[in-house]
Design a protein around this nucleic acid. Sequence first.
DNA 1: GGGATGACACCTCGATGCACTTTT
DNA 2: AAAAGTGCATCGAGGTGTCATCCC
Length: 555
Amino acid sequence: MHLQQLPSPSALASKPKCVDNAFKHIIAAGDECVSSSCDTQENEPPLKRLSTGMGNPTNALDYIPAARDESESADKCNLPESSQAREDFESSSAMFSYSGQPMVPALPPLSSHYMTPHPVISNGPYNGLSYAYSQPYGQTYPNAAMYPFASVPGKAQVYLCNRALWFKFHRHQTEMIITKQGRRMFPSLSFSVSGLDPTCHYNIVVDVILADPNHWRFQGGKWVPCGKADTNVTGNRVYMHPDSPNTGAHWMRQEISFGKLKLTNNKGASSNTTQMIVLQSLHKYQPRVHVIEINKSGDEDTSDPDRVQTFTFPETQFTSVTAYQNTDITQLKIDHNPFAKGFRDNYDKSYIGSDTDRLTPTPGDSPHSQLLPASRYAMTSALFQEQFVNSYTKSCFPTLTSDPGTADRTLTFTNSLATSNQSQERWFVSSAAAPSYETDINSAALLSYALPVTGGTSSSLDYYTSATGWDSQGSLKNSNKGISNLPGWVLDATLERSPQLNYMSEDGDMLEIDRSALGVSEEMEGKDATDSTWNKSQASIKSVDSSDLRIMEEA
DNA sequence: GGGATGACACCTCGATGCACTTTT
DNA sequence: AAAAGTGCATCGAGGTGTCATCCC
């Protein structure tokens, strides 16, 4: 059954009529009525059942009715760009693009994914980096973009804004506390979107699905599988951004933050008007973001696969816990979450006055918005990428190799975010002689954003499994390249100052990449080389370099 | 024994009210 | 002079991790 949440009166007043009926949605709770007309309370936004004509009537696609305060609703389409927000963006770190893949028309769109109560990503030995939506745990979801960097014409691109921080946690296997009352995610999910039609209306939705079929336990300082995951749990699994629905221009103008999303293990929470997603402890989960175009009548036309695009960021995978298991994760939370400042041993000396050096926009850093201006962010991101690529390639990669199967070796990019105009790309990353597998994986994933290869025809999933060195069955790929466990690129450092970046593929082919296409303009590069204040003025980038690039150094 | 729960101290956030300044 | 705008202090609500305790 499908439910629809009606917007508040003020929201109605500020929105075109065509979006009035746009709150009909998704959730994967089997046939459970998560929040329906029968349990609508007077003081809650009204909900009503409706049919969206999706393929399977048993798909329960319910949105958690995100709380909307009236003032928020009133100005949703024209939020001012506060100085605070700009500061937030300047202190923000990496932002990378993931493009949605067109859905296969023959398959049911978004709704299909919710057919099973707890769809699971079945992954390889290294969780989170080798996904395949397998039938036993969840339906294959071809529209789920993993790490494609392609810029598909007419398709949305989604950037994970605080990605560097996510990677910091991901290195240690992110843990998220779940409580009865609900606990916010930290790091929070924060995205920037581009490629939308400015005049069309969209819903932006986050859901959380099982990332693997195992129940996990923290033993001996690491997570080990312990039995099978319980896939029959019901409850809210989907959270719609409170600004939904809104125009593409609105979504693209500012960062889309899901900072108020809460995680709970309280199954009863599904019957409340909450902002909570119900999870089970000691399971691994993968958040996803959906960009859903709504039609003129305000409905989600999920019969058209082009209207639903899904993006998955593997570094946002986490294990749900009721108490932190890994002390590294605890320390990261304390270090980066402003609400945990009280637990910083040397808070007075180390953190006062240095919050701008913090890697991440935390909830406290951006108190006034769930939407932050994107233009500044994009600039920061581009700078980050540029520096990241430079730093990484200078320090780590003497040569660049590519997928031997690619024919056209010349890359062109549409913008400074280094997105390619190729619709299908493969990203292969080499990590030379990594001392540990995890380090290898992470550095591979990091670099994968920056060095695209065109001409591939594999799916995004293929990309990802390839990039991480695992095949789609989860087996470690055999690499005989000597310095690398993974197929990939290695930059020819001796050529890096030429107008074009020259890369050598694994099979020896030389590639040329327009330096400007990578966001490495002459001006920027010169600035990078000569401006001694760079590290001081780009605190967030410095943080990334100093911390995350350690991965590269290890490699 | 291990996970779940609730109380606790510490902290941030955001609403509110007030005083002051600027504009009309 | 009155209205509107701005800045600041205050305070309660709520978000943190920690720890003791309970429960299975």
